[in-house]
């Protein structure tokens, strides 16, 4: 069963779903989206022996806005997640994130080190994401952001992998259209300006970096370079998958369980 609750975290009333008991895992969504991206994962992962915690980041989904307005610093999200982990009483959880969630997972791994059991960073590299920051800042004004809904729909379809059936890809894109454009754009500014490369060598928990071969938002080479800079890190390239592995891969919970089990094993080879 999935339990839903509102928690006060760092001044924001945040929506948090939890399921299961066992090893805690925090799952982080992508830019502009919400925990609904993990709807196919949460119950099944819980049944595999995990306590799964899925928050909506501030201003996303059912969570209230952050006190200072939309957040464009992924470090601020990472600090918020650290407080969330304390708030719900998780001891040495795994953190799994995708896109900005993946970058936040890397940031948390650097901040929390051995206080995390490990991190899985999907669809994320440690450097500044390749976006046009000037154009994104202009689009913070609604008058400068035409057809945002269609662009999100078509842009999502463009970065879903070739192995994903059309009907599923269209469902993913339709769900992504629910975003708040200003929040989404702020997230993307964070994606383009947050750089955790200098911290990678100090990460003391095990990490897996995952890239989709069809992802246009990051290059597999950048993700591989990120993995190579982290002391205990494994790298996975997913053929036919794009920017949203947890929504694109059928039976993602089992795949994630395999990755988390490998992180728990001592001294994995790269």
């Amino acid at each position: 069963m999935i339990e839903a609750d509102y928690r006060d975290v760092d001044g924001t009333r945040a929506y948090v779903e939890q399921a299961g008991t066992g090893t805690p895992v925090v799952c982080l969504h992508t830019a502009g989206q919400s925990g609904v991206q993990w709807r196919d994962t949460i119950a099944e992962l819980a049944s595999l022996g995990y306590r799964v915690v899925v928050p909506d980041l501030p201003d996303h989904g059912r969570s209230e806005p952050a006190a200072g307005g939309p957040i464009s610093d992924l470090g601020q999200y990472a600090a918020w997640c650290e407080r969330l982990i304390d708030e719900v009483g998780l001891r040495r959880p795994f953190v799994v994130g995708c896109s900005i969630g993946g970058k936040i997972a890397l940031d948390l791994a650097a901040r929390m080190g051995s206080r995390l059991a490990g991190a899985v960073a999907m669809a994320a590299a440690a450097g500044n994401g390749t976006v046009n920051l000037g154009a994104l800042r202009r689009e913070l004004e609604d008058v400068s952001a035409p057809s945002r809904s269609e662009r999100t729909y078509l842009g999502t379809l463009a970065v879903v992998g070739s192995a994903v059936p059309t009907e599923r890809a269209e469902l993913i894109a339709s769900m992504h259209r629910r975003e708040d454009p200003v929040v989404s754009t702020s997230d993307l500014i964070g994606w383009g300006s947050h750089d955790v490369r200098a911290k990678l060598a100090e990460i003391s928990c095990p990490v897996r970096v995952v890239a989709g071969a069809d992802d246009l938002w990051i290059s597999a080479d950048d993700a591989r370079a990120t993995a190579a800079s982290i002391p205990r890190c494994q790298f996975t390239l997913l053929d036919g998958i794009g920017h949203y592995p947890m929504e694109e891969l059928p039976d993602f919970a089992a795949v994630l369980d395999g990755w988390l089990s490998a992180l728990e094993a001592p001294r994995e080879s790269r």
């Binding site: 035409p146 057809s147 662009r151 078509l154």
Partner: peptide, 12 residues
């Protein structure tokens, strides 16, 4: 460029 973005669906 604004009209280009506005016509995303039309171009598709």
């Amino acid at each position: 460029g604004y009209e280009y973005l506005r016509l995303a669906k039309v171009l598709s």
